[in-house]
Simulated assay, not measured.
Amino acid sequence: MDQPAVAAPRGAHARRSRAQRDRSASVPPGQGRFLRFYLLLFGADALLGWLAWTMARPITHGLEYPLWSLRGAVASALSDVVVFGGLLALVAFRVVHHERRCFVDLGLRGPGRSSEFRRGYGLGLAWTAGAMVVAVAAGWTVVSGSVPPSTLLAFAPLWMVVTAFQAGVEEVIFRGWMLPLLAQRWGPYEAVTVQALLFGCLHLLVDANTTLAVLHGLVFGAFAGLYVLYRHGIWGAIGIHSAYNFAAIPLISLSTGGKYGPAGWHYAAITLTGIGVVVMLALDIRDRRRR
């Protein structure tokens, strides 16, 4: 008579199954290959940005406030499609053809995606408006009427869609693909730090107050990374990032005479986001101790 199979200890079986899933789900690259791919993304961002600028320049020529005219808004939206669509295509190709994974494995699976996005979007709107209140109260900026409310409302749907696409691509790259990969190599908090640094470095390509843009990207990258660790998915971070980018357009425009550029709002937003980093770190540490 055949002897019955001896069941493996439950904990060992779970660890082995988890390890098998990890091995089958991804192909962890070496450090050199990882850095080369990031540099490829950086170079592609620069090249696509130049291409988008070349395409948009004839359309926006002569416009004082390109974001708030039909020609300028369409040109800006097409530019974002070129840049972020190209970056998304590169990451999707790597994940599907090199790592042999499904694209939705980049933190896009799981229940509650809609509720997570809505919760994040509400938080992002409140955060951005709060930064504006702080900036005005501190005397760092003033609200002007250069852009009529009717114009803001008319262009709001377009910018909501564009910023959601833009933010979604960045979250997929940095918090969906990069963060888990780095955490597997070095640990969660090291991963948050590295991806935040690289996310900030990507903002070296921003031509409006580059230093401030890099600092803002660094602090937000740390917050978004910790938020993803805490919520165990990227949909909430996509919502926050989308609302953050969307609300920043009219708020900065209102505080800088219709031009999207440096303003006191940035300083307030960086400060509030830095507080958010501390709060999320404390919450994540508390949850890890409870497990």
Rank of each mutant, 00 (worst) to 15 (best):
C102F: 14
I240F: 02
T141M: 06
A75C: 00
V27N: 15
R10H: 11
A138S: 14
G112D: 02
L251R: 09
T273S: 09
V206S: 15
F103L: 01
L283F: 05
L205F: 05
R16A: 15
E99C: 00
L226S: 00
P28R: 03
S24Y: 01
S17Q: 15
A224C: 10
W127E: 11
A208D: 12
A46F: 15
A269G: 04
W186K: 05
A156E: 05
A89K: 08
D284C: 08
L67I: 10
W50A: 11
S242E: 06
L197H: 01
P262T: 14
L281D: 05
I173W: 01
D2W: 12
H266P: 13
P111E: 02
G122W: 07
L283K: 06
A248F: 09
E190T: 14
P58V: 07
V82H: 13
S76G: 13
Y227T: 06
G124V: 01
G225H: 04
G130A: 03
G85P: 12
R10G: 11
Q31F: 15
V219I: 00
P111F: 02
T54E: 09
V278H: 00
L272T: 04
L39I: 03
R118L: 14
A282P: 07
H203T: 02
L212I: 13
G43Y: 03
A224E: 06
Y189R: 02
R36P: 04
V169E: 12
R57L: 13
W50F: 11
S79Q: 04
R291N: 13
A56V: 03
D207N: 14
F93L: 15
L90N: 04
H97T: 14
G112I: 02
W53Y: 08
L218S: 07
F174V: 04
Y267L: 15
Q20M: 08
R36G: 07
L153R: 04
Y189Q: 00
R286H: 05
L90Q: 03
Q31N: 12
P66K: 03
C201S: 11
V219H: 04
S114H: 12
L226T: 09
V27W: 09
A5E: 14
A222I: 07
G112A: 06
R289K: 05
P28N: 09
M55H: 12
A183T: 02
W235G: 10
S255C: 03
V169T: 12
G257A: 01
W50I: 12
L152R: 07
S242F: 04
P157F: 10
A129K: 04
L35H: 11
A263D: 01
A46D: 12
G86Q: 12
R175N: 00
A237K: 10
D45T: 09
D287A: 09
V83F: 10
V194E: 01
I249E: 07
A12S: 14
G49L: 01
P149A: 10
R15D: 10
G139Q: 03
G130Y: 01
G72K: 14
Y244T: 10
G11D: 15
P58W: 02
S24P: 05
P111T: 00
A213P: 05
S26F: 06
